[in-house]
Simulated scan of single mutants.
Amino acid sequence: MDCFMSLFDLVGNDGIVITSEKHLTVDSALDLMCSILIKNKKVDSCYLEAIKQKHREIGAYYVLAPKIAMPHARPEDGVNEAALQLTIFKYGVDLESEDNGDVYLSITLAAVDSDNHINTIMALSELFQNDEDIDAIIQSDNIINIIDILKKY
């Protein structure tokens, strides 16, 4: 097996959600950000609950930068398989992050162990530092275009 996996390999063809919903609550946004991971049994629903619980305790710990969120919990919180879900909020969503404002792009991270986790985090941070690609993803209505960007990382 090729040890290099692009972000696309972890997202897959059906791991992208684009929503035009407005005024989502934090909980309903988080439901959406984990929906495909749960549907495809990559994580159990307790993983989503762990993220919500941590949010209630410490706030939007997963909002990393303006526009960008990376919801995640611990592998033992219900991860069955390493995976990512990419969710685009066309109108942004307020996840109660005081520092970073509304989120337009969320990549939910499900990691099974810390080794694979590191490579994924490195690839994600490379993507997150590329404003051009981030904006292209947020503005795109075409999943194929988004997949092409993910394959670069």
Rank of each mutant, 00 (worst) to 15 (best):
A73M: 04
R56N: 14
S114H: 12
D133Q: 12
Q85D: 03
D27G: 07
E96G: 14
N40T: 14
H23V: 01
L37W: 00
A50M: 03
S114R: 15
A69N: 05
D133K: 13
S6E: 11
D44M: 10
A111M: 11
Y62L: 05
E96D: 15
A83L: 03
A83T: 01
V79F: 00
L105N: 07
M122Y: 10
H117S: 13
D115H: 13
V26S: 12
E49K: 11
I58N: 09
A111Q: 08
P71H: 13
I107Q: 08
M5E: 08
N40I: 03
L7G: 04
D94L: 02
V43R: 00
G78T: 10
C34E: 03
V79P: 00
I51S: 02
S45K: 05
G15R: 00
A123Y: 07
C34S: 12
I36P: 00
N116I: 15
I147M: 10
E49C: 02
D99L: 11
R74Q: 12
V93N: 04
A83S: 11
H72S: 10
M33L: 05
F89G: 03
L24S: 06
L7H: 08
H117E: 11
A50Y: 02
N130W: 11
L64T: 11
E57S: 13
A82F: 02
T108F: 02
E81R: 05
S6V: 01
I143T: 14
Y61S: 08
F128C: 12
V26H: 13
I138T: 13
Y62Q: 07
H23W: 08
L86T: 02
A110I: 10
E132Q: 15
I68L: 15
D148E: 15
I138V: 15
T25I: 07
C3P: 15
L48M: 06
I143G: 02
K54H: 11
E76T: 14
I38M: 03
T120E: 13
E57C: 11
L64I: 11
T108Q: 01
I18G: 09
L86M: 08
D44C: 03
I137L: 07
Y62W: 10
M5S: 12
I144V: 15
N116D: 06
L24N: 05
E57V: 12
L37Q: 01
L32G: 01
D99Y: 10
R56P: 00
D113T: 13
K41P: 02
E49P: 00
M70D: 11
L109G: 05
K52E: 10
L150A: 06
C3G: 09
G12S: 08
I16W: 04
S20E: 14
E57H: 10
T120D: 10
I138D: 07
Y47W: 04
L95A: 07
H72R: 07
E126D: 15
E132G: 13
Q53M: 12
A69H: 04
L86Q: 01
E49R: 09
I58P: 02
D102T: 04
E21K: 15
Y62P: 01
G15T: 01
S125E: 15
D113L: 05
A82K: 05
L150N: 08
A111E: 10
C34M: 06
E57R: 06
H117T: 12
T87W: 03
P66N: 09
K151L: 08
Q85K: 00
K39D: 10
K67H: 09
M5L: 13
I68R: 06
N130L: 11
